[in-house]
Every structure is written in C-alpha cells, then in structure tokens.
C-alpha cells in the first residue's frame, strides 16, 4: 500500500508543554489507520495538525509526496482532508441538508450576488445520504430531532461527501449505543471500500482490531510504534500504550 499522507518528525509545543515530539507516521491509501494512546498522548493534537487547525513547530506533513503547508482547516479541506469532530460540529437548528452544505452552499450566480439553490442542495443531500445507506430521516428535518447515531452519520456523510481523500474521525462512536456504534462502524468500512483513507482515533480496542488495517500508538507526545493490525494483538497494543513494551 502506498502512503497517502505522511507526517515526518512533527513537533509542537504549547508554551512549555511539548504536546508532540518528533512524531512520524503514515496513512496508506484505501485503508483504515487507527491512532491509539492514552488521554493526553497527543492524538488529537496530531490530528489537528493534519486537519490544519494547528501548525507544527517542526517537521513536515506530506500528501502524495507533496509537502503541505496548511494554514487553516479550509486549506486542509481543499487538499481533500475532512474531519469529523468529536463534538460533531453540526448546527442543531439547521436542517440535515443545510448542515451537509454548510459553508459550501450551492448558489445561482447573479453577478456579485448569489441566491441559494435550495432544490439542488436538497436533491444532492438526499443522494449523499442514500449512498451511505444509513437510517437517516428526511434531509429536511432539523438536526435537533436526530438521535446521536443519526447525527454522527450526517457528520460522516458531510466529511465523505465532498471528494475527500482522507477522512479523520476523532472518537466517532464514543457517545453512541451498541446498535448505533455498529451502524457507524459499517459506515467507516464503507468509506474504505469506496477507496477513501480513514484516520480513526479510538479508545475502543475491539473496534480498532475489528476495523483497522494499521495501528499507530502514541505515548506522551511520541509515536512509539506502528503495527499491521493483522500481525498484532490487543495485548501488544496495550503494552505499547502503557509503556510495558518499549
């Protein structure tokens, strides 16, 4: 598998706190890459660097061999990197289709002005939701009325829907029940089957072993190891996380 994205020697400090120390890892094309580690190990910080939220002090992030200089999440999005945030980043008072197209609204251009093309957005939203084949209600309903799993599905749908190549998910099933978790996992697998790369942060070992192709382990701001999921065991991963295995 060729590397879609790789981080080389990424370091980042917040004041005197060294959040990331010389982190290197790769995300292969068409695979689910898991990122595990204890709370505060630096997973979210690393992911935010890749998503353009933070800029690393040292090191480079390259995509398909080209080095990226991301200044903002929009930059990352333009490169095909989409993020499903831990807090979902959906606006509850807006409808499903409005959320799917938030800040990427389709408009009828009329000189400097543009009127929303509501019909086209609704139709495309319906198609986006349908391709993911999840239990999502009408695209015209407000997100406030959706269950946690449905919201997560909408968030993933948004990340997956716009020619993204890498979808980053930060704890996508942390707040979900058993059935909803299963459904979201189906979705994640489907993204991979569609040829997208997924970078998954998870605390759930079973989930990591079940879904991922590659696991990277972080501890205290460092990337302490990577394994092919098929060649490792849950115990080995736990050992790497806690430091029992050096």
């Amino acid at each position: 598998m060729s590397a879609l994205l790789s981080a080389d020697g990424v370091s980042l400090a917040f004041g005197s706190v060294q959040a990331l120390k010389d982190v290197s890892l790769t995300v292969a094309e068409g695979e689910i890459t898991a990122l595990v580690g204890d709370n505060g190990a630096g997973k979210s910080t690393l992911v935010r660097c890749i998503a353009g939220v933070h800029r690393p002090d040292h090191g480079t992030i390259t995509m398909r061999g080209e080095s990226l200089h991301l200044k903002s999440p929009e930059d990352a999005r333009e490169q095909g990197i989409e993020t499903v945030h831990q807090n979902l980043a959906l606006v509850e008072d807006l409808t499903v289709w409005q959320n799917l197209f938030l800040n990427r609204e389709l408009v009828h251009k009329m000189g400097p002005f543009g009127l929303l093309d509501r019909r086209r957005m609704q139709r495309q939203a319906r198609e986006m939701v349908a391709t993911l084949a999840v239990n999502v209600p009408a695209v015209g309903s407000r997100v406030r009325r959706l269950s946690g799993g449905q919201r997560q599905a909408v968030a993933i749908c948004r990340a997956a829907g716009f020619s993204s190549q890498l979808v980053i998910m930060d704890e996508p099933t942390a707040a979900l029940g058993v059935q909803e978790t299963a459904r979201v996992e189906e979705l994640i697998t489907k993204l991979r089957d569609d040829g997208r790369a997924v970078l998954l942060i998870s605390h759930n070992f079973d989930q990591v072993m079940r879904l991922s192709d590659q696991v990277w382990v972080m501890r205290a701001g460092r990337c302490v190891g990577g394994r092919r999921t098929a060649d490792t065991t849950g115990q080995e991963i736990v050992g790497l996380i806690t430091g029992a295995i050096q």
Binding site: V91, E92, L94
Partner: peptide, 11 residues
C-alpha cells in the same frame, strides 16, 4: 445556532 460548529466548517 452553534458558533463552534460554524467555525469548524470554516465560517
């Protein structure tokens, strides 16, 4: 509706 969410989408 949600300033945080709006910011996250780049608004």
């Amino acid at each position: 509706g949600s300033r945080e969410a709006a910011n996250a989408t780049g608004i």
